[in-house]
Design a protein around this nucleic acid. Structure first.
Lengths: 235, 235
DNA sequence: TGTACATCAGTGAACGCGCGTTCACTGATGTAC
DNA sequence: TGTACATCAGTGAACGCGCGTTCACTGATGTAC
C-alpha cells in the first residue's frame, strides 16, 4: 500500500522537498557560514518552529545540504563520464575533470561547502556523507583499476618508495591497485581540486582571471600522470 | 623627534599590537566566519566600543588579519628559502613547498582565511592585501626567471598552445618569462595548494590521513614540472 | 614653571537586529469500532 | 456510514543570547602662552 499515500504522508514529503529546495536557495544566497534555520523558514513562508518537525536543528540542515550537494555533483560527473566509450580511458579522465569543474563553477557555494574551509563548530557525520562523498573519487579509482597495462609513464623522480605506496593503497581501500598508479590518481585529484579552488576562491589575482588555459593544462597534467605520454601507447 | 614617543603615541601602538594579537587568538579559536569585534574586545578586557578608535569596523579587523597572515606566511617561506644556496634551484622549490605546508599545518585557521572559501559579505581590498599576498608566488616567479636554460622538461601533451601561454605571461606580470615555464609554475603552485587544502580541510577521508607520502609526491611533481627529470640536467 | 584649554582614549548604556530552540495551543487528518 | 478519540503539522509568543555600532560622558595627556 505504499503506492497510495495519505494526505499527511504526501504533504510530509512535499514539505521535506520544499525545505531542501529553500535551504539550497539560502545556501546559494549567503553561503554555508551564514545559513540559518529562520531564513529557510522565511523562504518557505512558515514559522521557524515548524521546521523542527522535519529537522533536528541547524546542524542537520547543513548535513542535508552536504549530502545533497555531493549527490548532485556525483550524478553530474557520472552522467558525463558515462557518455564516453568505456575503452577511452583518457577521455573518461578528461570528462571527470571538466565536468567536476563545470559543476563547481555553476554551484560555487555548494563547491565551497564541500571542498572549502570547514564550517566552524560543525562536524559532518561521516556515515551520512561518505556514500555520496566518494562518488567522484570512485570513478577515478575505477579508471585506475581498469587500466590493465603496467605503469606506463616515466616515474616522477623522488617518488615515495614502494613500501609506503603499498601501505597507502591498503589504507585507501584499493589494496589491489599498484602503488604508483594510486599515487598518480591522488596527485591528479589534488591537483584538480587545487586548480578549481584557486579559480573559484579567486586566489590568483585579476591577471590570471581567465583560467581556461591553466585548467586545460591541469587536465593534461592529470592525464599524463594517469596514463603517461600518448606516444607511450604505441610502444 | 620620532625617536621619543609621548605617552599617548606609545600607548596607541601598544594597544594596536594587543588588538592584532587578540584578533589572532580569536581567529585561531573560532575561525574567520565567527570572528567578532566584541569577542576581541573581551579578550583584551576592554569595552567593545573602545576598539572603534583603532578600527573602522569588523571588516577592517578581517583585512588586518589577512594582511598579517600573508606577511607571516611570506616571512616564514622566504626565510626557509633564503637558507638554500642560490644555485640549487630544485632545493629552493622544495624549500618553498615544504615550508608553505609547514606554516599551513601550524596555522590552519590562518591558512583557511587566505586559501579557503571566501568570507561571505566581505571583499578584501586588493590594494592592501596584494603586497603581502604575492610574496610566496613571487619567490616562484623569481625561480622561473633565474633558470636560464631553455625549457628542459618533456612537454606535457595537450599543453595549451604557445599564443595562449604568451598572453598568460603578459597578464601575469612576467612578460619576459616563456610560456611553458609560466604554465609549469602555475601548475606546480595550484597542485601545491590543492594538496595542502585537501589535507587541512580533511577531504580525503580517514584512510589517507597520513599524507606525508602524498605530499612528498606533490613536491616531486612540482620539481619535475619546473625543472624536468634530473637526468635531463646532464644532457 | 604654572595655568587654561584642546585633544584624545576608554567607558558604559543603549539601539535594533537576527539567531536557535522551546512550548502550549489549535485545527486538520487518521483510526477503531 | 457515523461517531469518539488519537495523532500529527503548523502557529505564535517567548526565552536568552551575541552581534555591530552609536553616543554622551569622564578623566588623562598634550599644547599654548
Amino acid at each position: 500500500m505504499t503506492s497510495t499515500m495519505g494526505t499527511r504522508e504526501r504533504r510530509r514529503s512535499e514539505v521535506t522537498a520544499a525545505l531542501l529546495a529553500a535551504a539550497k536557495r539560502e545556501l546559494a544566497r549567503t553561503g554555508a557560514a551564514g545559513l540559518s534555520v529562520r531564513a529557510v523558514a522565511r523562504d518557505m513562508d512558515m514559522a521557524p518552529s515548524a521546521l523542527f518537525r522535519y529537522i533536528s536543528g541547524r546542524d542537520e540542515l547543513l548535513t542535508l545540504l552536504i549530502v545533497d550537494a555531493y549527490s548532485r555533483l556525483g550524478e553530474h560527473v557520472e552522467a558525463v563520464e558515462r557518455a564516453v566509450p568505456r575503452s577511452d580511458l583518457r577521455g573518461r579522465w578528461r570528462a571527470i575533470a571538466t565536468s567536476f569543474r563545470g559543476w563547481a563553477v555553476a554551484n560555487p557555494h555548494e563547491y565551497a561547502l564541500l571542498y572549502g574551509s570547514p564550517v566552524p563548530e560543525y562536524k559532518a557525520p561521516a556515515e551520512r556523507t561518505n556514500p555520496s562523498g566518494t562518488r567522484v573519487t570512485n570513478l577515478l579509482a575505477a579508471l585506475g583499476m581498469e587500466d590493465a597495462t603496467p605503469p606506463p609513464r616515466p616515474s616522477i623522480p623522488h617518488m615515495p618508495d614502494a613500501a609506503e605506496l603499498r601501505a597507502l593503497a591498503v589504507a585507501a581501500d584499493v589494496p589491489t591497485m599498484d602503488g604508483d598508479r594510486l599515487a598518480a590518481g591522488l596527485l591528479a585529484w589534488t591537483a584538480l581540486v587545487g586548480a578549481v579552488s584557486s579559480e573559484l576562491f579567486e586566489q590568483l589575482g585579476e591577471p590570471v582571471a581567465r583560467l581556461d588555459t591553466l585548467f586545460d593544462a591541469t587536465v593534461a597534467l592529470g592525464e599524463w600522470l594517469l596514463f603517461g605520454s600518448p606516444r607511450d601507447e604505441s610502444a
